[in-house]
Design a protein around this nucleic acid. Structure first.
Lengths: 160, 160
DNA sequence: CGCAATTCAATTGCGCACAACTAAATCGCG
DNA sequence: CGCGATTTAGTTGTGCGCAATTGAATTGCG
């Protein structure tokens, strides 16, 4: 019952199946959420990632790009064009910080603030769409946060 | 204690916070998985979505584009260029089905078959990286599949 | 049989995610 | 103070995800 080196063992086959289900499931769930948000946010003129940025701004009013990126785990390669589109839509305003010219402060415009009220129904609608009790969603969140933290701190080497 | 029509109620504020955490968590987890897979698959020359396609093909040998899309919830707009890249990498072969000229059959090349052995370590490595017992991952999968099914069948109307 | 409806893959266009790089401003050490 | 290292946004390029459209092949109904 030894393991032939360099050859997949029997349990690799089982794991491959399990693994497949997990990454399939996560992928599918992520896209299913995206699809629902897309419909919900359609008339607000927001995409799902743009909605996430607006959520952060609705909470904090104004933030440097850096802070938004930290909250959402996004870098400037994603945020810069996204914020430019939000600015073109008249929802935010971007300005170089006077005390640190490297930093760009993103602030809500009156239209951006006003959009919050219309977006107020989104969370409830989403909750309904999941068809799950709040406690189950909370449990789901705990598991997701756990696995995210572990994956982030894992030292992973490429296969081969 | 009535709800003023057209105005967010107090619980909307709480929901907004919870909702934020759920979509944040799912988003973050999805990207964390993506990051780990990116590293794992680097030397195999595969992206994560390409790996998913290869998993399907390793199981079934050859499939029409349609079937691959059904398994992975992807449409031709995603699969056509992805499969073209896999073909350019010499891993798959595409051919119009003789009995139905609309259909394109995707089959593994010898190199594509051979890659399976090198990829065999991926699931175990990923499992290790999650740092979670298999049972927790199974529970996670159940929750994800539940919510995906609910979201897919939900009749969602845009806000406003 | 003939023609409209359907199926299937591909393409186009847009937005997001991320790596790699650039450019400018700031910091900090000697 | 001066200069190299660091920080911060932005840009470029690649690939994925999805909606909408196209075009060809097939199906099915009258």
């Amino acid at each position: 019952m030894t393991t032939p080196p360099g050859h997949p063992v029997a349990s690799d086959e089982r794991l491959l199946r399990l693994d497949q289900q997990i990454c399939f499931s996560l992928n599918a769930a992520s896209r299913a959420f995206g699809g629902v948000y897309r419909v919900l946010l359609k008339d607000l003129g927001l995409t799902y990632p743009q909605y996430l940025v607006m959520l952060v701004l609705w909470e904090d009013g104004e933030l440097p790009v850096k802070r938004i990126g930290e909250r959402l785990r996004l870098d400037s390669g994603t945020l810069s064009p996204l914020l430019k589109r939000l600015e073109a839509a008249g929802l935010v305003h971007r300005e170089r910080s006077p005390e640190d010219e490297r930093s760009v402060t993103v602030a809500l415009t009156p239209a951006g603030v006003a959009l919050r009220e219309r977006a107020g129904q989104v969370p409830r609608r989403l909750l309904t769409a999941t068809g799950m009790p709040v406690e189950d969603l909370a449990a789901l969140r705990v598991l997701l946060d756990q696995v995210t933290a572990a994956l982030d701190s894992a030292a992973v080497e490429p296969v081969e």
